[in-house]
């Protein structure tokens, strides 16, 4: 069975139902709107470029077991398996990858979300606070009362 999805910029994609159902949001929508499937499902926060990528990901992972998102104490310890295909998949420009994280978040494609967040973590890893600020183009807004910023930075380089 096929499902049609419409990106925020109006492009329509037709995919297998089981592929689309990797998105928790779409899966829930399909349950609710079972009778009304002649209209494409609108994805207001996801552009066509990102949606194509998300679908590419879901096609590849259509047979994966689902991730249980339990809030158990050890849930933080489960690193997501990354195969060669996934590594290849993440070789896109940084901004695209972050767009994909947002798309995966709004569609609730859990494995892609984890893959993206791991990618984001890898970027931030071993960076100093200054480097992170540069990367994200954010200002240091600590007041002197909050922290002695220069002292912090000195400490960081010492550690």
């Amino acid at each position: 069975m096929k499902v049609t999805l419409e990106s925020s910029d109006g492009q329509v994609f037709t995919v297998d139902k089981e592929v689309a159902e990797l998105s928790v949001i779409i899966k829930e929508m399909l349950v609710i709107e079972q009778a009304n499937q002649d209209h494409p499902i609108p994805l207001l926060n996801v552009g066509a470029v990102e949606l194509a990528k998300v679908i590419e990901y879901c096609e590849h992972h259509r047979n994966d077991p689902t991730i249980d998102d339990d809030e158990d104490y050890d849930s933080r310890k489960k690193p997501i398996e990354m195969d060669d295909w996934d590594k290849q998949f993440t070789i896109v420009n940084k901004e695209m990858m972050f767009e994909l994280i947002l798309a995966a978040n709004s569609m609730q494609v859990k494995p892609l979300l984890h893959l993206g967040c791991r990618y984001a973590a890898d970027i931030v890893k071993r960076m100093s606070p200054t480097e992170i600020r540069d990367l994200f183009q954010i200002d240091d807004d600590f007041t002197p009362e909050e922290q002695d910023k220069i002292e912090w930075e000195k400490q960081w380089t010492k550690l």
């Binding site: 967040c117 791991r118 973590a121 931030v124 890893k125 992170i132 240091d140 807004d141 910023k149 960081w156």
Partner: peptide
Amino acid sequence: VASYLSPADILACVQVN
């Protein structure tokens, strides 16, 4: 994201802003 970061990395993050 934080679940993939070491405490030392998170320590840098708390100092960003």
